[in-house]
Design a protein around this nucleic acid. Structure first.
Lengths: 343, 343
DNA sequence: TTTGAAAATGCAACCGATTGCATAAAAAAT
DNA sequence: ATTTTTTATGCAATCGGTTGCATTTTCAAA
């Protein structure tokens, strides 16, 4: 209720008959300060409830020890695990984190970028929104020499550093698996092909079809925004295809779960009538029936790697401008939804 | 690559032959500054790529215009929508947001609280972690007169302001609905009863049983941590009860989804053999089969209300110490998982 | 032309921590 | 006892906006 006076190093200095400089050094364990003096300072600081003023400190140091993160959405297992990985590394390195989310819109992504820019983060980690078309909103960072790293949703052609999985390979393996299960007409439900992850998976899908002597048919590729409504619509489109596909590779687990629901409502059996493979290995995979075959995405590892690289760069240990792309392993997890052939 | 020099108001002042004070006022549209001067300042600022230094500004103003938020987890629809509501209001009021998450642990919650305290947020919004036992980590805020508001997971007995739904009523209605569907042995799967939300729902459950002349049996109440494993275990415990329950009210949709899976694997039909009601109205409700009856939790509204009250308090428009508890409406959404009686 | 009020701008002291350099005190070497 | 080295501490400028108060400029009223 009653606002206490804020304690500063000057208060501590006065009380101990020291200079503010000594208190400042003492508080951060500077080697030139006497051990006992340090203890006296620390004790009094605790007693008075001193808290360091970040603003004064950052103003003077011209650094913030803060890293900004921009993600497209928060409510996904994948993103949450990436954040956990980033947090682990940044906390160890004593950096603070400011997390912003774009709700999949370019507008909010740009607003977040500007916000973090004004907050003067020392570095930025980002995954692009659904409809981001260019990276101009990250240019202020480049101009000021603030490192930016992308993960997952990146611009493949850009010069910035990025951490990704091999989406081409993942798409290839998912599709090849369906082919190996005997599927002859494999559809693909995906999202905005401007996003590298989806474009690459589509490429993998196509190559796997060709390598398995299955024809690639544009009509079997459906693009939507992965919302519940769009997913259901895509599923109905699959059902309406003639002949109906006997397998479908879907680029997102939630979308796949919705599709499965529609397929089952239409009386189709999974995997007998239509086999399904999703992507991400979200918790939902084990809840849907049958359990969903999917591609496991090592989120924590991805977060750790992207954060570690950024911090190494900030510490001058390495230079991210030399390492352009880091590829992380992913793997197909086979469950019932695609097991046409019983083992 | 090449780090540009940072532009300050002094640079602008020098170039326009003005004082820094005038530039400062001009940039923030102070009424005493001539319109044309303002325009000249704004134009040059843009041209030079000026960005205001928050640290200098906050240091001087002794305010941050930032609100901290601590939530227990990010990957839930409910939390995401609360955050959306908070964001909407705070953005309009020109406050920044710093979001921290505790991963359901007291330790990280306390660490987040200290971090936000040192970042000197003007106010704090929080929902407690699974195992938080006391509120001592929020005391520094109280001491400095920084307002703290809780939502959803709160300490009912505490003096702090809180925004909640009527969990008692929600639990009552969910249970009464099962009774109305003809269930005679209704089980309840819930979580840490130290969390008000779960304790209150249990109370509602118990009263509804009594009001429907059904006996309350402690053995039918299972407490777990809502993880996938714990949920499956709880479901198996329900299956093992003799006689087996014919209805179950589960305090969380994800947990309910896992349970349904276990029930179905055991050959039970939902809702014929066992009716299920969940809680939260997450997207998963419409993906499981049959679709899950649940309690809708108005996340966005909750976020808006808690943020609006906090900001009003900060602006001195109202005083949160007068309003102790705000209750928001929730409602039962009936789907197939509980419809024993066909309509 | 003078005067008074209103409008616009400037002065200078903050806010609190950091840090290069100077200095003082204590310990060691001569 | 004196000089050198080591160890501790202090001085004072700096970071970049903000703001109460003073001063100057502008413009209309007398």
């Amino acid at each position: 209720m009653s606002r206490e006076k804020e304690i500063t190093i000057y208060d501590i200095a006065r009380e101990l008959d020291l200079s503010a400089a000594t208190v400042s050094r003492g508080l951060k364990d500077h080697p030139a300060i006497n051990k006992q003096t340090k203890k006296k300072i620390a004790d009094l600081a605790t007693k008075l409830g001193y808290r360091s003023n970040n603003f004064a400190s950052n103003l003077r140091k011209q650094r913030t020890n803060t890293i900004g993160v921009i993600v497209h959405e928060l409510n996904s297992q994948f993103i949450t695990s990436v954040l956990a990985g980033i947090e682990k590394v940044t906390t160890e390195a004593n950096y603070d984190l400011i997390i912003g989310h774009s709700s999949e819109t370019f507008k909010k992504e740009a607003a977040n970028a500007m916000n973090l820019f004004h907050k003067r983060v020392d570095g930025l980690i980002a995954s692009l929104a659904y409809d981001t078309e260019d990276l101009s909103h990250f240019e202020p960072f480049a101009k000021k020499g603030i490192p930016v790293m992308f993960f997952d949703r990146v611009f493949e052609q850009s010069e910035t550093t990025k951490v990704v999985i091999n989406n081409y390979k993942a798409g290839y393996e998912a599709t090849a698996h369906l082919a190996a299960q005997g599927c002859k007409r494999i559809a693909h439900i995906t999202a905005n092909l401007k996003r590298n992850v989806y474009a690459e998976r589509l490429n993998g899908y196509r190559q796997a079809l060709l390598d398995n002597r299955l024809s690639y048919d544009e009509k079997r590729v459906l693009v939507n925004d992965l919302s519940e409504e769009a997913s259901a619509k895509a599923a109905r489109q699959v059902l309406a295809m003639k002949p109906m596909p006997d397998g479908v590779f879907i680029t997102n687990d939630f979308c796949a779960a919705v599709c499965m629901q529609v397929f089952k409502d239409a009386g189709k059996r999974i995997p007998q009538d239509i086999a399904v493979v999703g992507f991400n290995n979200d918790a939902i995979c084990k809840i849907v029936e049958p359990k969903l075959t999917t591609v496991n995405y090592p989120g924590i590892e991805m977060g750790e790697i992207v954060a570690r690289n950024l911090i190494n760069h900030l510490h001058g240990v390495s230079n991210i401008h030399l390492t352009n792309t880091i590829i992380i392993k992913s793997e197909l997890i086979i469950r019932e939804s695609s097991m046409k052939k019983q083992t």
